[in-house]
Design a protein around this nucleic acid. Structure first.
Lengths: 338, 338
DNA sequence: TTGAAAGCGCTAACAT
DNA sequence: ATGTTAGCGCTTTCAA
């Protein structure tokens, strides 16, 4: 990191000289703050335009101890879930003049910790982080930052400030209960890396426990180390079905991407859903609902989480009070595949 | 925008006092710059840890006139293409200590212009923008910024500094030539909003022109005002096929999302591909290759564009020279649908 | 309605 | 190996 030293960019002083006023007057015009004579404003504005002056927010932020940056830390950009969330955040905050600074952790706690430090160093107005599990170090930094912190996606743990999300355990349990109710008894699971995706793990845990309690423990499972994708789901279902002993009548996938891969595998092999094999996903992606048979899945509110998180930030920064926990919920979508 | 004034965060001076050294020594330890006695380093580091000091990069950036921020302006987060690109950028720059500040234009020129100003105000080390078409105002700001500017996705126009992308006209023309070669003569087009997505428009233009030159002008088209999606593609194909006069034997979709929607429509209606209707997409998404019949499409290098752009930034900032134009190319993927 | 002075927290440059 | 001085470009505060 270095950033070549730039050749003397224009400063307020340059504009002030050109407009025949003082620096502070130019500053006031730019920030639309304080009383300015109409004529003065015009002179300053034309000088700015003419010279192509771009204010320096680094200096401004230092002097005023305020910032229009909002840090956003997400685990992945591969999983469409997070671009969706980011879109929601951005939609709200950009309307209020804030910008997102994005960090991607790749689901790694050490990277998260490093990113939190790096983003806090820019003294953002607020920080949005994913999940409610953090290392002690991360937690200490977040607590000590003295700014609005929003934890998104998941509810629970020891909230740092504001949480916006849903209960993944409830989603897993409800999915299991649904399959049991529909009469499935040999139920398998296909997932992606659970050691890292803690929310998928929570769903998995509640899912399997609910099955056990119903007297139909998990019949088999494949967990790939790959990130979730349609391809990974397809390959994993092929692998699961190849395990002779398993003989599932239904499979719960860690998310819709994976489940759609499963559906494609069934299509290619002439396996009928749900009569030969039932399939359930998680997320409620539009694409799953476009399949010849709409996917049975759990609809989640990804965009809404982003919006709610962004709104929480904006509200706080405007001095309005914000609920400490915002549960956006989820919804079982009973499609045709289970 | 405001950002509540924070209550006196720790400064270098606090740490210096605690460690019994001067501010500059602490600064040197933090930045790992200049010679520091092992013992001094230990004392300073332990003071930092003990107090939970987080350096202020706003002040640091102002003092040193350097930054670890890289602005990235993309049109959309809905279209998976851009998260892919962003992922590539991030992969490279984060390894070198840079962070991405993201702006989303929603394909609007006025928003782009505003974002360029807002990001340049943070005096980033470099700025990555999408496309090679910009308003005069934007172009002037980019030219005057005096930093590395990378235009991504598309090649052509009047390059500002560095371009990383491919030739969309060539992709459109090659797709048309392929369909003609395969014997299709009643070819339709299904697209999303072309007034905004200039690259899709370029492909469309070259595609239709090539068809004309081959004596098989476009047989029909549907352009939805919606953003591209599987649903939009499915609905648009239904609409196109409902136009009695059209009777297409092949359809070119503006991208794979749309094309996959078309495939789903065919599946649901028992329309066989490619015998009843051939389908071609654009992008080469993994999912399209997972369909029971792999999608015929044009493979693009989204992630690679991000990586190359990130690398160009890093190279420039390290004083290495960088090619002014990097053509990552594309590749016709002859699947089973056309 | 405008301006002068002081200083935000850090780092470059120059001592020592 | 460490410290001193000056100043980055802006905004706050106070004055006129």
């Amino acid at each position: 990191m270095s950033g070549r030293r730039r050749e003397a960019a224009l400063t307020l002083a340059d504009v002030a000289r050109e407009a025949g006023v003082s620096e502070i007057t130019v500053s006031r015009v730019i920030r639309a703050k304080g009383p300015i004579a109409a004529d003065t404003r015009r002179r300053v504005e034309s000088a700015i335009r003419k010279m192509g002056y771009v204010p320096n927010r680094v200096a401004g932020a230092l002097a005023s101890a305020t910032s229009d940056l909002v840090g956003v830390i997400i685990p992945s950009l591969t999983n469409i879930v997070f671009p969706d969330v980011l879109r929601g955040v951005n939609e709200v905050i950009s309307k209020h003049g804030y910008r997102a600074v994005v960090g991607v952790t790749d689901y790694r706690e050490d990277v998260e910790s490093e990113l939190v430090g790096a983003l806090l160093a820019w003294r953002p107005a607020a920080l949005i982080v994913t999940g409610c599990e953090h290392s002690d170090e991360t937690r200490a930094m977040l607590r000590g930052a003295g700014i609005t912190i929003v934890e998104i996606m998941d509810l629970g743990g020891a909230p740092i400030d504001i949480q916006v999300g849903m209960r993944h355990e409830a989603a897993g349990a409800e999915t299991a209960a649904y399959l049991i109710k529909r009469g499935y008894r040999r139920i398998g699971y296909i997932g992606h890396d659970l050691t890292r995706d803690l929310r998928a793990r929570k769903r998995y845990g509640a899912f399997t426990q609910t099955l056990c309690e119903a007297g139909a423990p998990l019949a088999g499972e494949i967990v790939t180390p790959r990130p979730s994708s349609v391809e990974a789901g397809r390959d994993a279902l092929a692998a699961l079905l190849a395990l002779k002993a398993t003989r599932c009548d239904a499979v719960y996938f860690s998310n819709d991407d994976m489940a759609i891969g499963g559906v494609f595998h069934c299509m290619a092999r002439g396996i009928r859903t749900p009569s030969d094999l039932a399939i359930v996903g998680y997320n409620g992606l539009g694409m799953g609902q476009c399949l010849p048979q709409p996917l049975t899945t759990v609809g989640t509110k990804r965009f809404e989480i982003g919006v709610a998180a962004g709104q929480a930030v904006v509200d706080r920064l405007s001095g309005r009070s914000v609920a400490a926990e915002i549960d956006v919920g989820f919804e079982l979508i009973t499609g045709a595949t289970a």
